[in-house]
Nucleic acid binder design. Structure first.
Lengths: 339, 339
DNA sequence: CTGCTATGGGTTATCGATAACCTAAACTTG
DNA sequence: CAAGTTTAGGTTATCGATAACCCATAGCAG
């Protein structure tokens, strides 16, 4: 529309101050709504800022004030439907308070988490929300320790010293399913999963499931494939392997809903009656989002609320309040039509 | 373990330089691998940095050099399974090149996008990846215009001047479904959707669908509820309303897969045979991720690749290469068992 | 041996905002 | 009405890194 004569130079606070006819400090105080400034002066500065389209440079601001409103969230993966909800919950609390969230993906690799952490710390965030219950590198733990940035951990626990942990009760999740299977009169329960050496929370559920059954004198068949991703396709593959190796299996507890749905898909394809011949249960509650006919029995995790709780804990911490070091969300079994 | 005597002070480049016995500038050059530095000096600095656990302060670095490696990605929502994949694709390209991505959610609100943009620009990002095909505020457009930050737009087009757009061919998506319905001998096709005034891409698909059918002399019944979210529940509600108001309907094109699955869920519940009595089609391809028995016919969008293409365009742009102003990913109809 | 260019490294100023402190006028209050 | 306090605003120094420039010494050709 107009000529492109604007020099690519960005408007600074000094220019705003000059246009408003005040000192730079005064302009700064107006922009931050601090100090004591008279009505007319406030107005003049605001107007000047608007007129010039001033956007503060937070790099400079944060550098000087040694405070920032960046909160870094580090997750295993975002296209995992679990964490999408969690992030939404986090944002719903953080955004209104003026924080801005930076999200990093680690792909469940501890080296990647370490790199990620280094990168985000270099921006001097106000706080961190990390995912616990995953194997964390020695270096990363060290870095967290020495950096002393307010940190909340979600999902699961870990050895690193953090200020608080918010997550579901994984042990209960495992034993709830075990008990449910027993009530249904299951005699040959099984488990399928993957990457348990990295996903310590899943390992915890698995152990709770196994030990709850053992205490009733029932042993299980487990297939754990550490080299496969925790996804739908893996569910299909492992279900096939399981039913071939242990045809007597009449109930399968799956690491998560994605694997559960994959298993179901293979079972249906092969003509197994579910739940009459084989029952299937998962974990997360994500399978219900888009269910049409099959509603996988699963343990629901209130993901959005989890995000909100974590974010609230973090802002409380940043506001100097005391927070609970651990909050566990209760595990809730939701009954579908697969058990 | 050890005493907590470390003063909360962070290690600076000056300290690294002192320990290494060189000037600060030399240390800076070593850290950035620029300038001419001898082997031994390089080694000394690196060692000192490691020993102290030095993490550069990018706020300071970026402030001075007026360059940053932040790329901001602004999306309608992340728990929408579409964008999770897109972000993964983006990260897969950007992370290895040393960029770090900020992710903002707008909830499809243009005011929220504007706020987000202001916040993100205050960090002086190297580039932006925005979502097009949504209503954008006048202020936001203005800001983008005057800020001149390399910007790639994904998903759809918009009036704002950006450097490139990468997205699926929405028009084709609509007409492909229309043609498919015709081949199936459909006589009373319908459409259900929501928030079309905000989701301009969906509106484009809808228009293409309608006009393709009109050109064959077929008119459609459409139910568009602008106040409802574009989700599963909405699909159920709108399907019910549609079948009540227009019981002759024998095919439904849904705004997206989530609504499509919701519609299917209601149709199954009410005993409608799918696809014999009513056919259903959606858009995205996300419904197949967790499919068990029902595979919704849909138009697939290669979401991960879309993210990769957008990120590649952006880095090319940042490297000074010329890029295509528009890249359209071909719409591909995938045949499920609902049509 | 003179003049020229690399090599290796140091000096100084600066990015844009804000902390910390200061000052003058206006306003209380006993 | 003198002395203390508040109000409104300004001055100066600084956050931590890097751009831009400078200066030795070494190497090398003529």
């Amino acid at each position: 529309m107009s000529e492109q004569n604007t020099p690519s130079k960005r408007v600074t606070l000094a220019e705003v101050a000059k246009l408003a006819g005040v000192s730079q400090m005064t302009a700064s105080k107006v922009m931050r709504e601090t100090g004591s400034i008279s009505g007319p002066t406030h107005e003049k500065v605001k107007q000047a800022a608007n007129q010039l389209g001033y956007v503060p440079n937070r790099l400079a601001g944060s550098l000087r004030s040694k405070s920032s409103d960046i909160v870094a969230v580090v997750l295993p993966s975002i296209n995992d439907s679990i964490f999408g909800d969690v992030v939404s919950g986090i944002n719903s609390v953080l955004r209104p308070k003026g924080y801005i969230t930076f999200i990093g993906e680690t792909q469940l690799e501890s080296q990647s988490e370490e790199d990620m952490l280094r990168t985000v710390l270099s921006l001097h965030p106000a706080g961190l929300i990390l995912t616990g219950g995953i194997a964390r590198s020695e270096n990363a733990t060290q870095m967290l320790q020495s950096w002393r940035c307010p940190t909340i951990q979600i999902w699961g626990d870990s050895a690193s010293r953090v200020d608080g942990t918010v997550g579901p009760n994984h042990k209960d999740a495992g034993s709830l399913v075990a008990n449910h299977f027993c009530e249904r009169g299951i005699t040959a329960p099984a488990y399928i999963g993957a990457e348990l050496q990295k996903d310590l929370c899943a390992a915890e559920r698995f152990e709770a499931y196994r030990s709850a059954l053992r205490s009733r004198g029932i042993s299980i068949n487990a297939i754990v494939e550490d080299a496969m991703p925790r996804q739908w396709e893996t569910g299909r593959v492992l279900a096939e392997r399981l039913m071939r190796d242990h045809p007597e299996t009449d109930a399968i507890y799956c690491l998560n809903d994605a694997i559960g749905l994959g298993a179901l898909s293979w079972l249906h394809q092969e003509g197994f009656d579910v739940p009459e011949r084989v029952a299937v249960a998962g974990f997360n509650g994500t399978s219900w989002i888009n269910a049409v006919r099959t509603r996988l029995t699963t343990v629901n995790v209130p993901r959005y609320e989890l995000g909100q709780m974590a974010a609230t804990s973090l802002t409380d911490l940043l506001d100097g309040k005391r927070i609970a070091s651990t909050s566990q969300l209760p595990a809730e079994l939701i009954y579908g039509n697969t058990t």
